[in-house]
Amino acid sequence: MGARAIEGRVTAASEDGVVVFLIGMRINSFAAVRSWWPVARAMGPMLAELARDEDSGLLGCKSLLGGVREVYLVQYWESKEKLLAYAAAPEGNHRPAWAAFNRRVREGKGRVGLWHETYVVLAGSHETIYMNMPAFGLAKATGVVPVGRRGDRAADRLRTS
């Protein structure tokens, strides 16, 4: 059935800064399974590794489909330093997966694509609202509070210093 909806209006508990990391894969040739299947499978072990490490900095993530050819993740991180540390860690799953992907890109002649975008959002520079939804997005990653606790209007919740 899925997560239970929270009645009414709520917002994410976090008033701290957050890093939003978007990463995705595009299948350019469905017939080239040897090019895209290993890329698709690489994310699971990385997410499991991050979930086991409470100090990794990953607050939460959500996988999404972008039509037939695209799969992507929205990830919320404590800081850019923790995100970059994970990406560069020689003992983690990311470095070998990245090296394998680069080999596949050279051999695969464009049959699979990969992209990512990183946004550093300063404290007070993000605003959320969820109505009759289960905990979702940033609220699922950081906790849910009634809207009134952070301000009834979007402008109230967007307090920039």
Results as ranks from 00 to 15, higher is better:
Ser63Asp: 06
Pro45Thr: 01
Gly60Leu: 09
Tyr130Cys: 04
Trp77Pro: 06
Leu114Asn: 00
Glu54Cys: 11
Lys62Arg: 14
Met131Gly: 02
Val120Asp: 12
Glu127Lys: 01
Arg106Cys: 04
Leu58Glu: 12
Pro90Val: 10
Lys62His: 06
Leu47Thr: 07
Gly67Cys: 03
Gln75Ser: 13
Pro38His: 08
Phe101Tyr: 14
Ala87Glu: 12
Met133Gln: 12
Leu65Tyr: 13
Gly108Ser: 09
Arg103Cys: 03
Glu54Ile: 11
Val74Asp: 00
Thr118Cys: 14
Met133His: 05
Ala89Asn: 14
Ala99Asn: 02
Lys62Gly: 10
Ala89Arg: 10
Ala40Trp: 15
Arg106Leu: 14
Leu50Val: 13
Gly124Thr: 10
Leu50Lys: 09
Ala97Gln: 01
Gly108Val: 09
Gly110Asp: 13
Tyr86Ala: 04
Ala87Trp: 02
Ala88Ser: 15
Tyr86Lys: 05
Lys80Val: 08
Ala48Asn: 11
Glu81Ser: 13
Leu73Lys: 00
Ser125Ala: 15
Ser125Met: 11
Arg111Ala: 08
Ala97Arg: 03
Glu91Cys: 02
Gly108Ile: 04
Ala48Gln: 13
Arg111Met: 09
Ala99Lys: 13
Ala97Val: 00
Met133Arg: 12
Ser63Glu: 07
Arg52Lys: 13
Leu73Asp: 00
Ala40Ser: 11
Arg95His: 00
Met43Ile: 15
Leu47Asp: 03
Gly108Ala: 06
Thr118Ser: 10
Leu50Glu: 11
Arg69Asp: 06
Glu117Pro: 09
Leu47Asn: 08
His126Val: 12
Ala99Glu: 09
Ser56Asn: 14
Leu59Thr: 09
Gly108Lys: 14
Glu91Pro: 03
Pro96Met: 08
Met46Leu: 10
Leu47Gln: 12
Asn93Glu: 14
Arg41Cys: 09
Glu91Gln: 14
Ala42Thr: 08
Arg69Ala: 07
Ile129Trp: 06
Trp115His: 06
Ala40Gly: 01
Thr128Ile: 07
Gln75Pro: 07
Thr128His: 06
Val71Asp: 04
Tyr119Leu: 08
Leu84Met: 14
Gly66His: 03
Pro90Cys: 01
Ile129Tyr: 04
Gly66Ala: 02
Thr118Tyr: 03
Ala100Asp: 14
Arg95Trp: 00
Ala97Gly: 01
Glu91Ser: 10
Val105His: 12
His94Tyr: 12
Ser125Trp: 15
Gly113Ala: 08
Gln75His: 11
Arg69Cys: 12
Tyr119Ser: 12
Tyr119Glu: 13
Gly44Leu: 10
Arg41Pro: 02
Ser79Pro: 09
Glu70Val: 11
Val68Lys: 13
Pro96Arg: 02
Pro90Leu: 01
Cys61Ser: 11
Asn102Ser: 08
Asn102Lys: 14
Val39Met: 05
Asp55Asn: 15
Val105Ala: 15
Arg41Gly: 04
His126Ala: 04
Ala42Lys: 08
Asp53Lys: 12
Asn102His: 06
Asp53Thr: 09
Arg52Phe: 01
Glu81Phe: 06
Lys80Glu: 08
Ala85Phe: 02
Asn132Thr: 01
Glu107Val: 14
Ser56Val: 15
Ala99His: 03
Ser125Tyr: 15
Pro45His: 01
Leu50Gly: 08
His126Trp: 13
Arg52Pro: 00
Pro90Trp: 00
Glu54Tyr: 07
Lys82Trp: 02
Ala100Tyr: 14
Gly67Trp: 11
His116Asp: 13
Val105Phe: 10
Arg52Ala: 10
Asp53Ser: 12
Gly113Gln: 02
Leu50Met: 13
Asn132Cys: 00
Gly110Phe: 05
